[in-house]
Amino acid sequence: MTTLESPPSDNDSAFDEPVGKAGDKVFFGLSFGAAALILITLAAVAFFLFIQGLPTFTGDGTELDGDGSFFAYVGPLVFGTIYLSCIALLLATPVAIAVALYISHYAPRKVAQTLGYFIDLLAAIPSVVYGLWGITVLAPVISTSMFPWLRDNLGFIPVFGSDVAIAQSGRSTFTVGVVLAVMVLPIITAISREVFLQTPRLHEEASLALGATRWEVIRQAVIPYGRSGVISGAMLGLGRALGETMAVAIILSPARGYFWDVLTAQNSNSIASNIALQFPESSGLEVNRLIATGLVLFLLTFGVNAIARRVANAGFSGADG
């Protein structure tokens, strides 16, 4: 048995010497300050955009082109933004779900890990790279192969048929939609894959024990469980597509107005792309107007993200029921 010296007991048993109080104060101050700065930053974002956007409405409209009405200016841009993003989402979501299911339930485990890593990497490739790829590789290919085919065979649908000629360069809404789809696909895939992998093993095994095939397991257990996750992933992808700037700015051939036909060289621009294209050349009230459109984009994405979060929260809390 080891002998222990009796610990020094009554010489320094004062509890009222504060210990590390100063450090605690500083550290708490830093943390609280950082958190408070988040609030201040967002208030500042809204405030400065508002202050700098305001002159659009109060200033002398004749300085601007058109009739100077802000809503006439921003309307086609809002349309273009939403139109492009919806095309992207329509193309990307079903494919992303299938790919996510392939990675989570079909690919061998080792392969699946590598694929997941690869998908994450693709989500991080800068958008300017996707833009360059879209204009250099994709646009020429699909404008010569797909565009005539779509016009000839599906021309009865207004989206593919109009009096305006097909864009030979491929710099049309459709091409941008495809590029945006390629860009948001990794995001939707990554989130869907994660929720599919979280499907309770028990649900899947219960289904398997009933003699279900793999597809039946997916239909009965995996998809119902992951539905809200997939929806919120798609909404996040939508948020990304709404704010996507460079790919649109590089590829699209924009025009003023509302255009439904996705195959021509006359296309409604997106807000973000319009800012990127106009900003370097703008001055005075034009800058204020662009900032005001930025505020509109901010509100638009804010709305979409709010819906995404609501869907995700509603889904996950009810997922066990």
């Binding site: 988040i38 930053t41 967002l42 500042a44 974002v45 400065f48 955009l49 700098q52 948020g239 709404l242 704010g243 700037t245 973000a272 800012i275 990127a276 662009l290 900032i291 930025g294 505020l295 984009l297 901010f298 994405t301 804010f302 979409v304 993200n305």
Partner: peptide
Amino acid sequence: MTGIPSIVAGLF
């Protein structure tokens, strides 16, 4: 903040 479009961050 996560949802702020990058161009809006630039404008700010």
